[in-house]
Write a protein that binds this DNA or RNA. Structure first.
Lengths: 162, 162
DNA sequence: ACAACATAGGTGACAGATCAACTATTCCCA
DNA sequence: TGGGAATAGTTGATCTGTCACCTATGTTGT
């Protein structure tokens, strides 16, 4: 197995356009999530809180395994665990044990959590539209989807050979 | 001035495709930067360190105003300041005062910083290629550029009306 | 059946980011 | 020209995320 970082002549540097595209994308993501967070601030939920609660409401029972969250959000499991602990203190979710796998744990949304996300959702969606979705053509949204899928599939396929 | 979060009938929810595109994009960004960070770990630089040093080497004198970094990276100025302080302790950069504006400060790359980024750059670029650029068509890179520009322009234009 | 290994999750210490407050300068305009 | 507002930057408190490690349970191969 050969090393990615092995020096081998002059590397193929990125073109101006390639570098700029990556920079712009990173900046967009940063500013966009910052703005989404600001817009949520009145609701008492952070963007991260919102994401967790939104994940939970996707499930008919309003619960999800920690491991599943970890995959879906791309968060380390310890991050999920810490964040859930903080949300428990605020009464938004609880932990429940998993009957079929005694190692496992569910995160379950509480009534209070449900009220919080239901109150925040319309404003949040409006913000996502205003600063992102409504600025783009349908084809651009689709392009994002395709790009992200390509990149994610490749990342998953190579998660061992670091 | 009317409030974004004003309830006004049933909100226009996001379509499945729209929600999924945003989710996939966020996940991609998260996993990609995580991977770039891992790949850099052998070099003693974090992805953030690399970004700062790369910004500095863009300048012929290897220096940049804090304010400029703040804009370019999308970091809060206090984040820049704290991060620079940590990098100073490691000898990668120094602070220098600005003669034309006595409030201002330059961040200047040191020889050690230069050596560090020069050593890390080939591997980093290879990683960016492997996990991102080389997976995409030129048209896709361009699409990213256009999307990000659109969104960023709009964000800048509305930075007051929060 | 059981040893070896893998997986799920939590924990504490630490690194990194945010927020509010503060100082020092510069800008602006009356 | 002077006084208020704006801008540049730093700092400390606090919150959030990461890393290494730990326990408990599950899985697999012989």
């Amino acid at each position: 197995m050969n090393n990615v970082n092995e020096p081998s002549g002059e590397p193929r540097w990125l073109s101006e356009a390639e570098r700029e595209a990556w920079r712009a994308l990173s900046l967009m993501q940063l500013q966009l999530t910052a703005r989404l967070g600001q817009a949520l601030s009145g609701s008492g939920l952070s963007y991260q809180d919102y994401t967790v609660l939104a994940g939970l409401t996707d499930d008919p029972d309003g619960r999800m395994r920690v491991v599943e969250f970890s995959r879906q959000l791309g968060w380390e499991k310890s991050r999920v665990s810490h964040h859930v602990s903080r949300m428990i203190e605020r009464g938004l979710v609880i932990r429940a044990s998993c009957p079929t796998d005694k190692r496992g744990a569910f995160v379950v949304i509480t009534d209070e959590g449900r009220r919080a996300i239901e109150a925040a959702a319309p404003g949040h969606v409006a913000t996502v539209r205003k600063f992102f979705i409504d600025l783009l053509e349908e084809s651009q949204v689709q392009a994002i989807q395709e790009i992200a899928d390509t990149v994610l599939t490749n990342l998953k396929a190579t998660c061992d050979e670091r």
